[in-house]
């Protein structure tokens, strides 16, 4: 469990970092960006990947900012999960951040692992990938060619595969603010506390204007993890209006979970329906708490 030889680069500026990445790309070299290292380092130690070059961005200035505005939360590439988790202002604007971050691994991993790094890793069982897609967020990437903003829906292209180019650095992620009056919740089920979820669901519910004089219309959307190749978001407004059984049926039909040693696809499909209902109920309860307050 010792990594194969690699060359290490320690740029101090974004310009140096992307220049290094560009030069390595031009030489046809395999390079990886090292931030928190919580996914990359074990992969290297087990020699499951043997990149010849690591570009360590931990010394790059200006990548550790959390910028909060009424529009949302921008998270720099070196912001650790733990910092974002305890950022009260960010979590007031978008409560899904802390609701999901609480379920990201363990405190020691959150202290080191970065939120943007976990997005770039593009693991469909990652909580923050689901949150980025559910909130309609984006990733800003930079290379020697300049900056570009990649919407979440286009960022994740497959399991462990993002649309970042080999010479691009994920500079920051943007999580839009929760809509006014919205309630959010994030629930998941894991074998042990902090493990990758067998299934997880984030929910955003927005009470709308009254339809007729009866019940108000409610917009319901859910983001899912561990049950599809890329993070999945479903609009469940109509299903919810038709009842919880309907939500479960729609969810179970839409997802595509896989068997693994921890759970069968059947079981994942079963619990994902239940978790979706529970997430929606919890988000609605938050709406009512808000309204009561």
């Amino acid at each position: 469990m010792k990594p194969a030889p690699f060359r290490m680069y320690a740029p101090h500026t974004v310009a140096q970092a992307v220049a290094t990445l560009a030069a390595l790309e031009a030489e046809g070299q395999h390079a990886k960006v090292l931030a928190g290292g919580q996914s990359l380092v074990p992969v290297l130690a087990m020699r499951l990947a043997e990149p010849g070059h690591l570009v360590d961005i931990n010394g790059v200035a200006g990548l550790d900012a959390i910028d909060v505005s009424s529009a949302g939360v921008r998270v720099g590439a070196l912001v650790r999960h733990a910092e974002l988790l305890r950022h009260a202002e960010a979590n007031r604007v978008q409560p899904l951040l802390s609701q999901a971050l609480n379920l990201v691994a363990h405190a020691t991993i959150r202290n080191r692992g970065t939120t943007v790094g976990s997005l770039a890793h593009a693991d469909p069982s990652g909580e923050m990938t689901a949150v980025l897609v559910l909130t309609g967020g984006s990733v800003t990437a930079v290379s020697v060619r300049g900056e570009r903003e990649i919407p979440a829906a286009e960022f994740f292209v497959g399991p462990l595969e993002s649309s970042l180019a080999a010479d691009e650095l994920a500079l920051s992620a943007f999580f839009p603010a929760a809509p006014a009056g919205a309630g959010t919740a994030f629930v998941e089920m894991a074998r042990r506390h902090g493990d990758y979820a067998l299934s997880g669901v984030g929910a955003v519910v927005i009470p709308g204007p009254s339809r007729d004089e009866g019940a108000p219309t409610i917009s319901v959307s859910c983001g899912f993890l561990s049950v599809s190749e890329t993070p999945l978001v479903l609009d469940l407004s109509d299903a919810w209006a038709a009842g919880e059984d309907s939500v479960m049926a729609v969810v179970r039909a839409a997802i595509d979970p896989q068997d693994d040693i921890h759970a069968s696809a059947d079981y994942r499909r079963h619990i994902t329906g239940i978790l979706a209902v529970r997430a929606i109920r919890e988000a609605l309860a938050r709406v009512r708490e808000e309204q009561a307050a």
């Binding site: 759970a263 069968s264 079981y267 079963h270």
Partner: peptide, 8 residues
Amino acid sequence: ISPNDLYR
């Protein structure tokens, strides 16, 4: 026995 086993 796991939750998955119990479900089965």
